[in-house]
Amino acid sequence: MRWINTRPGRGAQLTLLLLPFVLLIAAYSAGSVARLAENPSDKLLPNLAGFADAINRMAFLPDPRTGEYLLWSDTVASLIRLFAGLGISTVMALVLGMAIGMLPYLRALLSPFVAVISMVPPLALLPILFIIMGLGDASKIALIVIGVAPTMVRDLALKALELPREQIIKAETLGGSSWQIALRVVLPQILPRLITCLRLQLGPAWLFLIAAEAISSDSGLGYRIFLVRRYLSMDIIFPYVVWITLLAVVTNYILDRVRIAVFPWSELEKQA
């Protein structure tokens, strides 16, 4: 049988799914054991006990200085910034993207502008943001918005433009006004795309958030990682990285489930 036609069964699928993760952990453990055997106080590759201790300290014991449970307060601080940035970007993408996609005048006005803005490297703007908006949350949220909104606007405008012309004409023959067509024909069809787009922007959004927190902050997951770096606290950095990854993976998964639950037809279309 051709390779392209051989498929794994259920058990094999699960095994294959887990394999890379298991291999990664095994490789790390081997490295950790080897280094700790040489030097028990090595900080670079802590062992499981080291991690457990660090996680316990960060997540379940109050910080002696502030009395806060650091992992949770960092998570809350970061997520607020992240979702504020993504929320603002989403609203902008929806309003601007639809307008650009549907209205030729606005397209002529904004489409090239957004294309140029989306080429500006956001991190290069960070100093400007810090100067103008200060070192607080506003500048970090602004960085996320600048980083992800232009791409989302373009993506949604494209999606709105991609709707078959026939559909829009059909809606016009049913007596729909521009507003009605936007509301009942275009909006519902680009919302699933908006969710997918949001999922794809989770990565960049975290990147900008952590960069901003690393440079100037007093809380947040990115801030903590860069703070403890000074003490080579790999036992804290690794769990934080895993935690951030986990948050991103779960958000990604939930968003996809929401799309399927709210827009069942979008899944049908994919299969059709």
């Binding site: 026939e166 559909q167 059909k170 024909v185 069809q189 037809w265 049908l268």
Partner: peptide, 10 residues
């Protein structure tokens, strides 16, 4: 039309 005459989301 031959295609795209109905709305896939309705």
């Amino acid at each position: 039309f031959q295609r795209y005459s109905v709305f896939p989301h309705l």
